[in-house]
């Protein structure tokens, strides 16, 4: 499923990185510990987090992640936003908490 479709179905705001909306998503990974994501997220995953600094995009890019979802209304720092646009990795926003986003995304990706 494409990032665009997930953003539409889960009512997520596209904050930046709009050129990457056609990135293909094969699953999700939820963590606020950067080394955990570095060690365990898979290429093509959407990363759900509340971290808003530039290093999030460095990791998303190095791991070939499809997009990042920021929970609870958090917004990216300016340099995170710039790198998201540069790397074409969308940052999506929601007011939902991590637990809720996880559940919705899991169901959507598993056709429930």
């Amino acid at each position: 499923m494409k990032v665009k479709e997930i953003a539409e179905k889960l009512n997520l705001t596209v904050i930046c990185g709009g050129n990457g909306l056609d990135n293909e998503v094969n699953g999700g990974y939820s963590s606020d510990l950067l080394s955990d994501v570095m060690g365990s997220a898979q290429a093509g995953n959407i990363w759900i987090t509340l971290q808003t600094h530039k290093n999030v995009m460095a990791i998303a890019s190095l791991k070939d992640l499809a997009a990042v979802i920021l929970v609870k209304g958090f917004l990216p720092d300016a340099d995170m936003e710039a790198q998201s646009n540069e790397e074409n990795i969308p940052v999506l926003g929601t007011n939902d908490e991590t637990f809720e986003v996880n559940g919705k995304l899991f169901n959507l990706l598993n056709g429930k």
Binding site: L33, S35, D36, M38, G39
Partner: peptide
């Protein structure tokens, strides 16, 4: 606070 410093860096290096 930035999400680093969880004591996973060196183990990640070893594993990879």
């Amino acid at each position: 606070e930035m999400g680093f410093g969880a004591g996973m860096g060196l183990p990640n290096m070893k594993n990879n």
